[in-house]
């Protein structure tokens, strides 16, 4: 009896350790629990990037399923995903809204003027395609901070009641769209359409 325990206990400890470490091989340390998921979009009041006199608030997301895309002209991956996003917009009528922020480290002492930023954005969008309905300009990057953005590109799938349903860090490519974002997007759009039909 004693001898069996002598072998069995270390064996059990070893097996538990193996299972624990093995699953560690497949866990992604960059995947953080998003704090805004299943919550209303945090309150904001920000200008349109191209028409600074237009102001948006969190209520713009109510009524339509939206993918809020955090991006900037300085972001290489954003340029890579842009043609695919444009294709999604044209072929599947996916509703993209941009949350644009610039990279001046301190917005108060920024070196770029708004016109300069607008020029850069226009030239980039004409080169890679424009998937956006409009772009919200996060001047002080406060809204990005409220949303828990860590960099660019990032995407927030927002349902028609203005609730964040998914926070995707990284680009959207065909694989990500088909496996992760697309199914939920289609489901949310279907839900919204039955809601609209029901309320009529």
């Amino acid at each position: 009896m004693k001898k069996i325990g002598f072998f069995l206990i270390p064996l059990v400890i070893f097996l538990v350790l193996v299972v624990f470490l093995f699953q560690g091989l497949f866990s992604d340390p960059r995947e953080l629990d998003s704090q805004v998921k299943d919550k209303q979009v945090p309150a904001f009041s920000l200008p349109d990037l191209m028409r600074p006199d237009v102001t948006y608030t969190q209520d713009v997301f109510k009524g339509d399923v939206t993918i809020l895309n955090v991006w900037g002209v300085w972001c290489v991956t954003c340029a890579v995903e842009m043609p695919y996003l444009t294709k999604l917009k044209e072929e599947q009528k996916v509703n993209f809204v941009g949350l644009y922020f610039d990279q001046d480290l301190d917005p108060d002492f920024g070196t770029k003027t708004l016109t300069r930023v607008q020029e850069e954005v226009t030239s980039m969008l004409s080169r890679y395609g424009n998937p956006y309905q409009y772009n919200i300009f996060d001047v002080y990057r406060d809204t990005s901070l409220d949303l828990g953005v860590t960099g660019a590109p990032e995407h927030f799938l927002i349902d028609s009641r203005g609730v964040v349903r998914m926070h995707h860090i990284g680009d959207i490519n065909p694989r990500v769209w088909e496996n992760k974002i697309g199914p939920l997007y289609d489901q949310l759009v279907a839900e919204q359409q039955t809601n609209v039909a029901g309320s009529r």
Partner: peptide, 23 residues
């Protein structure tokens, strides 16, 4: 820092760390 993991925001030079320091 959520971007440069295993660095604190004082050490990191990522933009998010700059923003968090400012905040």
């Amino acid at each position: 820092c959520p971007m440069c993991q295993n660095q604190n925001i004082a050490d990191s030079d990522a933009m998010i760390a700059h923003d968090m320091r400012r905040k």
